[in-house]
Design a protein around this nucleic acid. Structure first.
Lengths: 200, 200
DNA sequence: GCTTGACTTGACCGAACGGTCAACTATAAT
DNA sequence: ATTATAGTTGACCGTTCGGTCAAGTCAAGC
């Protein structure tokens, strides 16, 4: 027999929205079930635990992120450094939209969950670690291409990619803390200037 | 009558340690009371709510931070950019110590709490926002002094200070997510190269 | 020595937590 | 038409949550 209902996805989608708006701990299984119009017993037919759901939520976060931001910004029709600028633009627009609708800056869904759960749940921490590594590789490849094209001076592309990721995440966190989208507008574009030179 | 016991401080200290190691939501009032060897009724003699305690905890976080890191690194006996390098060194040592003792990178106590609570609790969000602003001003003054001394080229000291703070916080978050102190060693020193030029 | 008020104690509250389960319905495959 | 199983339902579990409260202890101030 094949899957025949959309219950699984409704649960994941509800959890994704609720946990992003609030936090892992603040969103209970009951609240997720209510939002998804699903009974708790049905929830535990699809998931063995809240943790397992959260791992599935992370996949959906990433799929959304890839469809709505990565695939557009990191298009091969753009020059490498233009991709990074487009990425910044899309991130700012996304956060600005949420801010207009909710009055709150939500920040990065991966960063939020990692910060809350890293010392508590090893599986969740590792999963987010892998996702960050994938983002880092994307930035690395882009910087490498910019170097190869002579668009930027020679740098350490790996260290610079990690630094850029750290800068993006830190900017998101500051914007969330100040609940102010202009923080993103003022800081994110400057990230393109970050360079870590090769150490010889 | 004057305060005659150390109960208040035992509660704050316990909450500080537990919340830093775990999270706001994962540390209940009962756990804090157990750790502080205090009964719950006594807790509510000193605090009207868990939120009020958390605001007090933030003050203690900051006092510790100032005593152990800021006052040492930002000593006027050091040249401006040396202060930032010393700050990096002390932060790395602090996180490395915790990692050696617990096997976990805890990250920044302010960033952790802000990320978890910013959309949930306005008072906590604002308090951390103010603390970040204070740190930003410290960085600003240091960069300004470096500029005035001619140690660095002219930049936008305010934007650069905010960018540096974002970079530090993002680095802490990545190190926590990868649970790896070497992330700090590799990334933090490069933060001193961050420059945001003045926009004319 | 008595009063005052800071502090402590332990029992208690309703609500919410994550999770379980037996019974039931509906549907796909034979 | 029957069977097997995917999916649903609602009641229920023990535990913990943040918070309350009446009663009691204890020491400082008069």
């Amino acid at each position: 027999m094949v899957i025949q209902t959309d219950t699984y996805q409704r649960i994941v989608d509800s959890a994704k929205d609720l946990m992003y708006a609030r936090s892992y701990a603040d969103v209970g299984v009951a609240a997720i079930c209510d939002h998804a119009r699903v009974k708790k017993g049905s929830f535990y037919h699809f998931f063995t635990s809240k943790q397992e759901l959260t791992l599935a939520v992370l996949d959906t976060y990433y799929a959304d992120y890839k469809n709505n931001i990565i695939n557009i910004a990191f298009s091969s029709t753009l020059k490498p450094m233009e991709r990074l600028a487009t990425f910044n633009k899309l991130v700012i627009e996304f956060q600005q939209d949420i801010y207009s609708q909710t009055g709150h800056i939500y920040g990065c869904p991966f960063g939020n969950l990692a910060t809350e759960m890293a010392t508590q749940d090893e599986a969740i921490r590792q999963k987010i670690g892998h996702l960050f590594t994938k983002l880092q590789q994307l930035l690395h490849n882009t910087l490498q291409e910019a170097m190869d094209n002579g668009d930027i001076e020679p740098i350490d592309p790996d260290a610079t990619a990690r630094a850029l990721l750290a800068y993006i995440e830190g900017t998101m966190m500051l914007a969330k803390t100040h609940n102010d989208p202009t923080v993103l507008q003022q800081l994110l574009p400057a990230g393109l200037q970050i360079r870590i030179p090769t150490t010889n």
